[in-house]
Amino acid sequence: MVVKIQVNNLNCWFKNTQVIKSLFLSILEHEILGIIGPANSGKTTFLRCLNRLNDLNPHFKSKGEILKDGRNINTIKLETLRQEIGMVFAMPISLPMSIYDNITYGAKQHGIKNKKELSGIVEESLVKASLWDEVKGRLDQPALQLSGGQQQRLCIARTLAVQPEVILFDEPCSGLDPISTAKVEETMINLKDKYTIVLVTNNVKQAARVSSRIAFFLMGELVEIDTANDIFVKPSDRRTEDYITGRFG
């Protein structure tokens, strides 16, 4: 198995509060790594370290190294890194433009101007995000008119349109109803063959349904990481067991 992302001794702070403590972790190619843990356990911060989105916060500091395909991400050009490591946010954030423009937005900025090529990207991305059949007739309509679940799949399509290798999902279903959630989960599983996926979720069952491996974070520390099966059947740490059986969190 190929290691896609290797995290070595990562420590992060906001102001003087340490939110991630000496984290070592490997993310394998073509897996869905689920990250679970109670609120404020550093899951989202960790996710946003991978595409360096934390850098936007002036109070953020970090130490340690993150390697993507063996290369330190700080040496990769920011735009390239973020194109290769895409992100889907907790709330479906459609930009206030048409469905078509939402999807081509990133691709256009990366220099694709050809109309035919762009249309191809739109269809391909929407098909992959299982949204094509629902919107193919109305691509020029404002994206904000879609339902929450559709918007979230639109966000996935938008991320796919810039041809990433890794996709980070930050609690992508937290604002969605069960049916929409099921559709997004199905989409994630379909994407697994082509992409490496990291899924942060508050929903232990969701992690169990889609993940190949699961990592449990608590108070900024990685407590345990194992295959989905093992972590649920025989967790090696007491705290993991407490969490997944719902005794806290």
Partner: peptide, 23 residues
């Protein structure tokens, strides 16, 4: 303008100035 718009654009690998200009 919501900060999330900027984050979405940046997360797609769009540069800072283009994010400001387009979004």
């Amino acid at each position: 303008v919501p900060a999330s718009f900027r984050e979405v654009s940046l997360s797609l690998g769009v540069s800072r100035w283009q994010t400001i200009r387009r979004v």
